[in-house]
Amino acid sequence: MTINEIQDEIIDEFSLFSDWMEKYEYIIDLGKHLPLIDEQYKDEEHLIKGCQSQVWLHAGLNGDKVAFTADSDAVITKGIIALLVRVLSNQPAEEVARADLYFIDRIGLKEHLSPTRSNGLLSMVKQMKLYGVALHAKN
């Protein structure tokens, strides 16, 4: 599936939730259950510091595709990371670099990616795209 096909799929899934409680319960569930990153990458080098929560991000190559793994100390942040990884991981580097992540706004989670939120997520998305740019150039 392409990045946009996955985004549309997520938007469809979220349209089933009738209120914010159900939506957040789902995100919390994602955050709780997905093992996201190898313990060895949870170090200073892979850390993106936010004022509110912290994020660890690792990028590797899977053939010609970028494979992301990430984690956070806050479970809601981690749940949103799970969605971002689902959209951007195992996609061609070039596609990652130019992805327009419209799904975040459409499922009503835009506030979590606002610069004032300072939870590490916005920096993580920027970092993911930079990896896309770098790996595309390298190929």
Binding site: W20, M21, Y24, I28, C51, Q52, S53, D73, A74, V75, I76, T77, H112, S118, N119
Partner: peptide, 22 residues
């Protein structure tokens, strides 16, 4: 077992304004 950011996010949804973080 609960991160302050998560707690603050849910409280916000419930109309309760608190500060979280350092």
């Amino acid at each position: 077992g609960i991160h302050p950011y998560d707690l603050g996010t849910i409280l916000d949804k419930l109309g309760v304004a608190v500060r979280t973080g350092h």
